[in-house]
Structures are given as structure tokens and as C-alpha cells.
């Protein structure tokens, strides 16, 4: 199994506060990995470093053999935890920009999947419900045929039934050998799709393990394990 992502000794501070403290881990090809931790534990900081949104970190990142930069961005599809599109933009325009920016963007697939979910090309971003905005973000991210997908808190505003559907959509759209790193507080909704879980606490990794191993060893769910660690 080849490695998609390797982080070594990653640290980052905001002023005096250490947001990430000596974080090292790898993600293999084809793996779906959940990133969990309380607010302020460093999840978004870690993700922003991987996505190239924060530059002044210590330590090294290797994505398919390249440091974070133009080459890594060409193979990383990143969806931030906030809506990145302006309210007055039409969905068709956003798809158009993606098609121009990313060679691996499958515009036809994006249009088809959005249409299935009744999100239409001539809708304005500002008119979408919170749930639909998040679906739009997820589908745009998954329509790139990337090596590594990074979704930061992708479906907190989506109702439970639609969430199950969007999880299936993610599985369907993801290429076989690509990997997915997903940060969310909604552990119960995604634990059955995960290969591995990473727990972050005060900027450090306190656990990184295959999820089925966890269930096998302790007979407890990932949600139980999380409560045990952070309660």
C-alpha cells in the first residue's frame, strides 16, 4: 500500500498558544480517516496546513511525495469549514471556475449529482439553505478526481436522513485509490465508513487506530471511545 500523506513533527502556534504540537502520522492510499477532537484541539489548523492555507508551520508534510505547494494542491481537494463562495454567485459560475482551475474537475458529474439533489445550476449561492450549501461544497470537492480529499466539518447543517445520503454520495464519487480525511463532531453518522480514527487533544495526537480494531479489542464504538477520551 502506498502512502498518500505523511506528516512529521508538525507544530504551529498562534502567538504563544500552541495549536499543533509535534504531530506525526501517515495516511495510506484508499483509506478513509476521521479526525476528531473538541473545539480548539487543532483539527482545522492541521487541515489548513495540509491545504496550504497556513504556511509558517514547523515540521514536514509530504502529499504523494511532494511538499505542500502547487504540486500538492493539484492532487488535494479541500473543502473548508465555512462557505467559500460569495452569495451573489450562480452555481453554474462556480462550476465554470472549478473547471478552469482544476484539470481533474468532472463538471458533468458535478452537475448530475447536484441535479439529483435538486440543486440547480442557475440557483444563487445566497438562496441555498444551510444544508444545501454544505451539499454543494461536498459535491464540488468530490467532483475533482483527487488523490486526497480533505473535508472540514462537512455536514453539521444537513439533516440526518440527507446526511446518510450524502455519505453514500461521497463513497460513490471517491476514486478507489484515493484517500479521505474528514473532520466532524458527528461521529455516529460516519463511524461505519471509517478505516481509521485520529483523536487530537490540545494539539497532540492522543490516538490513531483502525476503527474495527477498536471495536474488536474493547467492544465499544468510536463514539464511546471518544467520550472516554474527552469527557
Amino acid at each position: 500500500m502506498s502512502t498518500i500523506l505523511e506528516c512529521k513533527g508538525l507544530s504551529h502556534s498562534y502567538g504563544k498558544k500552541k495549536a499543533l504540537d509535534d504531530v506525526s502520522f501517515t495516511i495510506g492510499s484508499g483509506k478513509i480517516v476521521g479526525l476528531f477532537g473538541p473545539n480548539g484541539s487543532g483539527k482545522t489548523t492541521l487541515i489548513k496546513i495540509l491545504a496550504g492555507m497556513i504556511h509558517d508551520e514547523n515540521g514536514t508534510v509530504s502529499i504523494c511525495g511532494n511538499p505542500v505547494g502547487i504540486k500538492s494542491k493539484a492532487v488535494v481537494s479541500y473543502s473548508p469549514d465555512i462557505m467559500p463562495y460569495r452569495n451573489d454567485r450562480k452555481i453554474a459560475d462556480i462550476l465554470e471556475s472549478y473547471a478552469l482551475m482544476f484539470e481533474d474537475f468532472d463538471r458533468k458529474e458535478a452537475e448530475e449529482v447536484l441535479e439529483e439533489l435538486e440543486i440547480h445550476s442557475d440557483d444563487l449561492v445566497g438562496k441555498l439553505s444551510k444544508g444545501n450549501s454544505e451539499k454543494l461544497q461536498i459535491i464540488i470537492a468530490m467532483s475533482r478526481k483527487a488523490k486526497l480529499y480533505i473535508l472540514d466539518e462537512p455536514f453539521s447543517g444537513i439533516d440526518p436522513v440527507a446526511r446518510e445520503n450524502i455519505v453514500k454520495t461521497i463513497l460513490r464519487m471517491m476514486p478507489e485509490d484515493s484517500s479521505l480525511l474528514l473532520s466532524t463532531h458527528l461521529i455516529g453518522d460516519i463511524e461505519q465508513i471509517l478505516d481509521e480514527a485520529i483523536f487530537l487533544k490540545d494539539g497532540k495526537i492522543v490516538l490513531h487506530k483502525p476503527v474495527d480494531e477498536m471495536r474488536d479489542e474493547k467492544g465499544q464504538s468510536l463514539s464511546d471511545e471518544y467520550m472516554e477520551e474527552f469527557r
Binding site: 483509506k31 478513509i32 455519505v167 453514500k168 463513497l171 478507489e176 461505519q192 465508513i193 471509517l194 478505516d195
Partner: peptide, 14 residues
């Protein structure tokens, strides 16, 4: 594998 994994909403590797 993929079709059934999507139907069951589980990881294709599993």
C-alpha cells in the same frame, strides 16, 4: 464491492 458498499454506507475496503 463498490455498489454494495454504497448501498450499505460502509467503507469499500471493509
Amino acid at each position: 464491492v463498490r455498489d454494495l458498499a454504497v448501498e450499505a454506507a460502509v467503507n469499500p475496503n471493509t
